[in-house]
Design a protein around this nucleic acid. Structure first.
Length: 279
DNA sequence: AAGAAGTCCTGGGCGC
DNA sequence: TGCGCCCAGGACTTCT
């Protein structure tokens, strides 16, 4: 489940390899569903990408964007189990949906559950893509302030956990880092978002940024599928305070970590440290 | 309008 | 040992 730290780790890994490289050709698996959000067919994309050089690789929320010198941009979303891995030319891997042939290696989009997406757009049209168009600010950027949170959460009665997962409010958080951030901010995930106090909003912003920065330093969280290069796992799973720790003792107070369903997702929290009332 | 619920997808873990 | 069942969840659609 690549969230911001995992996607950023892919970017940092791949950018030096891809920059100024030439995509000699592209091959999509005939049955891939990853192009479902694309208006272009596999053949059209292959023709338009062939021969282009990579000018830049950037990240927005959970999206990766390859800027090509042919005035086009290749947009990747990794979904739940997607990964971008470079392998020796021609090397086969299960669940490969797309293969980008570079001179010395192939870049594979591997995705067992096929929730990922690939879209090719003209330069400058990326920001109009549904999902990207309405996306909230980068949590590590300057626009993400407590005042911004206050404004966006005002009047909202949904649990804060649900709204942290909403990419229109904040870009890049998923289930793991939402739960970890709420724990560090000592906020109960079911608290109505609009009822958070100014002090809590300050703590939440601080916690989100700290958790994401730490997770990026750890190259992300490997629970099952995620690897940022062949055989290379993240290490943030060793630092998780609540996620996937139901029934285990809270590292801070020793109480048992609880698990409840919220917004259709498993939500982990410490019933003692994360109070239902403002604090 | 906001919020909840349904949908897609497949491998892994579990109970029997 | 093997089968069926449930679960994981990001983003989109549909409903109330």
């Amino acid at each position: 489940m690549p969230e911001l730290p995992e996607v950023e780790t892919f970017r940092r890994r791949l950018r030096p390899l891809l920059l100024r490289g030439r995509i000699e050709r592209v091959h999509f698996h005939p049955k891939t569903r990853l192009l479902r959000a694309s208006r272009l067919s596999a053949n059209q994309i292959s023709r338009q990408v062939k021969g282009a050089r990579v000018r830049e690789m950037r990240r927005r929320g959970k999206y990766l964007i390859l800027e090509l010198d042919s005035a086009r941009e290749l947009v990747f979303h990794l979904g739940m189990t997607g990964k971008l891995i470079e392998v020796a030319p021609g090397q086969e891997e299960p669940h490969t949906h797309a293969r980008f042939h570079f001179k010395k290696f192939d870049l594979l989009f591997i995705d067992p559950r096929a929730f990922g997406r690939i879209v090719l757009l003209p330069q400058g049209k990326v920001e109009a893509l549904p999902g990207l168009a309405q996306m909230g600010p980068e949590p590590l950027g300057p626009k993400f302030t407590a005042a911004y949170l206050q404004k966006r959460l005002h009047g909202r009665r949904a649990p804060i956990k649900s709204l942290l997962l909403d990419q229109r409010i904040l870009a890049g958080l998923g289930n793991i880092y939402s739960d970890e951030s709420l724990f560090r901010a000592k906020i109960h995930p079911r608290r109505p978002a609009g009822h958070l106090t100014p002090n809590e909003l300050l703590r939440l912003r601080r916690a989100i940024r700290a958790v994401l920065q730490e997770a990026i330093r750890a190259c992300g969280t490997t629970i099952r599928d995620y690897e940022w290069a062949a055989g290379r796992e993240g290490s943030f799973q060793n630092k998780l305070r609540v996620y996937a720790r139901a029934g285990q003792p809270c590292r801070r107070c020793g109480d048992r970590i609880a698990r409840e369903r919220m917004a259709g997702r498993s939500t982990f929290f410490c019933p003692s440290c994360q109070n239902q009332r403002p604090a």
